[in-house]
Design a protein around this nucleic acid. Structure first.
Lengths: 220, 220
DNA sequence: GTCTATAACCGGATAGAC
DNA sequence: GTCTATCCGGTTATAGAC
């Protein structure tokens, strides 16, 4: 019914990039709106009409670009997954535990600040049993996790850091950094009904690094 | 259809406490079912029919005990809030930071293990903007938080622990302990598709205490 | 590609017999 | 207090004109 094929295969004269550009722009618009709606009301609570309204398009157009609500949700989740991996990247660039952990925590905190809705969609998906991202957890997250825990164990055996359970360490990093995105509404209440400023976020990042690095026997 | 209550309430004249006992038993049954359904699909995703089915009562009976779905949700949330406070109690019993933090973290981890669905309902409520518990956050959580952060600052000024930001410390404790409940599905995947055993939970509790206490300059 | 109108469906809530 | 049948509002998805 839609399909890139249709967009590509045009007879008259729209420029080569015309329809494709329209599609990409509208898909992006709709996905951004969907990310916010899904984050604020859950998959079932979000309505295609509210998403369309937020995106500034008629509801029928949303269904023109994404055949079903579930399809749209999947696309949003995939996008968040890609983003999630990007935050993990700094961890690959060094073999020094202090640098690696600081870089990783900082990247995750930046992500929490810059894209809180994506983090919330991910959180709700996992809380609800991860029906959609289950295969992703097995094929992507688990291998990543096993490689990283092995790396931490190597550092421990080399005496570079305290003998802590890598599982507990990674769970703590994930939980703490994502808390700043996921529990934003609660944090705001405790911050005199103001969302954390950039300065407060930077300070929080520094504190998280300090406690965790000190906690595993590294210099903060 | 089934229900212990029905078996208890035999034919003629129920004792003075008969109806009240029936009501309490059925309300408890329905609320437990609701806690699971709300946790697994969110407020909008949970259907009164699924809750009733899980509780083993007809849907009309659910509406007899709880006039609306929102009313039922409120009751579940209130119950979870009470439980949440109970976990905070150990923090009140001592003025030694090591004992207080260990006790608090342990209580929160026990809660994550024993009542994961309650934690998940709370998490989804906060993620979605805390529309229902907003006043609770202001009237209960915020005073608690301010009292506790002041206490931590007192310990810091007395040189009993490192000068960390109490906000970062409490967020880390909340995030990490609740992660074991909220992100259970993800944790299971990383644990070879098995939920954490009691032994693993105890070990995790110990590790969390070790990293955090060491992180703030206390003996674990 | 865009948009209005509507079909088809589902879920919350209730009526009223037992 | 229990339960079946039903109403009604709201949501997804589509038909069909532009």
């Amino acid at each position: 019914m839609n399909s890139a094929a249709h967009a590509i295969n045009m007879k008259s004269k729209p420029k080569a990039t015309g329809k494709r550009a329209i599609r990409e722009a509208n898909e992006r618009l709709i996905m951004e709106a969907a990310e916010q709606e899904f984050a604020q009301t859950g998959f079932k609570g979000a309505t295609t009409e509210a998403i369309a309204r937020r995106a500034g398009v008629p509801k029928a157009n949303l269904h023109y670009y994404f055949s079903t609500k579930a399809d749209l949700y999947n696309r949003v989740i995939e996008d968040v997954c890609g983003h999630w991996l990007a935050a993990a990247e700094p961890f690959d660039k060094t073999d020094d535990p202090r640098t690696a952990l600081r870089g990783y925590i900082t990247a995750k905190m930046d992500q929490a600040r810059m894209r809180p809705y994506g983090s919330r969609v991910w959180a709700m998906e996992v809380i609800c049993g991860a029906p959609v991202i289950n295969s992703y957890l097995h094929t992507v997250l688990k291998p990543w996790y096993e490689k990283r825990t092995a790396q931490v164990n190597t550092w421990i055996r080399a005496g570079k850091m305290n003998p802590v359970d890598p599982q507990a360490l990674f769970f703590m990093i994930w939980a703490t950094t994502q808390h700043y995105a996921d529990f934003g509404p609660q944090i705001s209440v405790l911050n005199d009904d103001q969302i954390l400023s950039e300065g407060q976020f930077i300070r929080a990042t520094d504190q998280v690094c300090q406690i965790i690095l000190t906690g595993v026997g590294l210099k903060p």
